[in-house]
Each structure stands twice: as C-alpha cells, then as structure tokens.
Amino acid sequence: MQEEVQKQAFGSRAVKAPRITQGGLLLGIGLAMLAAMLIVTIFAPFIAPFDPSATSPDSLAGASARHWLGTDSIGRDVLSRLIVGGRTTLLITITAVLIALVGGLVLGLLSGYLGGLVDDVIMRVLDVVFAFPVLLLAIAVVAALGPTVPNLILTIAIVYTPAMARVVRAPVLSVKQWDHVEAARSIGMSEFRLVLHHILPLVVSPILVATSLTLSQTIFTVTALSFLGLGPPPPDPNWGGMLSEARQFMELAPLTVIGPAAAIVFATLTFIVLANGLRDVLDVGSV
C-alpha cells in the first residue's frame, strides 16, 4: 500500500518533459499574475503617476485621462494610491505567511516526528489558538498591541501558524513510517539530518499548496483589519483602508470603491489560481 501511496505522490516526477496540462496552464496563469503583481508592487513609486498623498482641489472626480480611476474625497489619485497601497498590504500578507510557514514547519515537524507527549502538548496549544475565529483573534491581538505594520505581521502570523502546523504534521505522520526512513535510521543518521533530508523533501508539495491558499485567505484578513480601522495608520495608503474611507462616497464616486475592491479580488484570485495549479502539477490530493 505504501508503494501505491508513494507512487501516487511521486509518480509524476518520472515524467521528464513539461507538458501543458490543465494544471500546468493554471500554474502558468497563476505565476504570471503573481509576477505582474510583484513587479507593480516593487516598482510602485516609479509606476504610480501621482504622489499618493498629494491632494488636489478636484475631489471625487470620475475617470478621466488624467486620473484613470478618478480621485478620492480629498482629491488624491486613486490609481496611484492603489499601486502604492498594494505595497503595505502585500508586505504584511507575504511576510506574515512566511513567518507562519516557518513556525508551522518547526511545530509540525516536531509534533509529527516526535509524536507522543510532545505531539499532544503542541497540538492542544495550537487547538486553543485554532478555536478562535481568525478575524476575532486578529482584532483582539492588534487592539492589544497597537496597529503598526510589525504588529500586524506578528498577529497574522500567530493566527495562521496552527493551520500551517497541521498541514505539515499530517504527511510527516505517514512519511516517518516509510521504509526509507527506517533504512536511514538504521544507517546511524542523526535525527536532525533524518528529518531534514528524508522527511521534509517528501512533504513539501502539500505545504506549497497550503501556503498559497493561506496567502489568499491572509489578503482578506489583512484588508478586513484595515477596513475595520486596525490597519496601518493613515496617510500611507493600503487597500483595506482605502475601501473604508471611500465607503461613504460610494454613490458619488463608485470607482473609489471598485478600484481597491478589484485589487483585493485580483490578489486573492492570484493565490487561489496558484494553489490550484500547484496542486494539479504536484499531484497532491485535496488539501
């Protein structure tokens, strides 16, 4: 049975030439979307047509050749704020998920590999964190620590670590019983090397998919926090904050809401497409 599982998990590796499968196409689209987003974000100050904080007299203007997405209530260019605001939102999202990933890897590997009491303690503590609704927990932590960028990153990382740890732990539980791990142990390898070389490489696929999915959820959490007034303080733009400010003038200038909303949808979609593409290409079952 183990052979079959192994074959299922790694059979696709035997295929040498990259084929354009549905999964491959999906992964390509996801990567292209991610690349576009990252390029715009990294070069934001050069791409943005206006200073995102500069006000002008024509407030709440509609779309025009000068302001493609119009201006907000105090006359700032929506497009420029969108481009620069993506920096804050994506910085918080990606850094937080990376920290959650590292935390999840350490806890998940420890828990899954050592098992027994260590496993019980780690998983029960994580269950406590897991039991809170994500947004509620995030609001509580940010409210306690204060809404600065590092605090937001820390908060989101804490909130998503339990989920990552579970995703890591599950395949470790199965892989650690495979014959090649026993063979490695009988050679006299240190536990550290064993986990690093003989277990971790075989659980990477589901972790990659889960990371991408978590990114899409995190975008939502980050913008929701900002929308609720717990994001980075103004005047620096961010997507959630823009949405919140523009909400009152929705009827007068719909573009001020549609702009950031579309950006959030695009970012979320990017990570979902990426996750689905990865899942198909890496041949991971449903995660």
């Binding site: 183990q2 052979e3 192994q6 790694f10 590796r13 495979w178 014959d179 090649h180 026993e182 063979a183 490695a184 009988s186 050679i187 006299g188 390898m189 240190s190 090397r193 070389h197 003989h198 490489p201 075989l202």
Partner: peptide, 28 residues
Amino acid sequence: MQFVLQNPYSSLHPRMTIGQILREPLLV
C-alpha cells in the same frame, strides 16, 4: 550492524540518486 529491508521499492529515498544514497552512510 546494517539492515536490508524487504521492499526495495520503498526502502530507497525516491528523490535521491543512487550515488547520493550510497554516499550517505559514508558521510554519516
């Protein structure tokens, strides 16, 4: 003391080359 397991399909690391597999005990 060494171990030869029953199933040669599962007792080799699927993502290591034969050279890497044989080098491992020597390195350890």
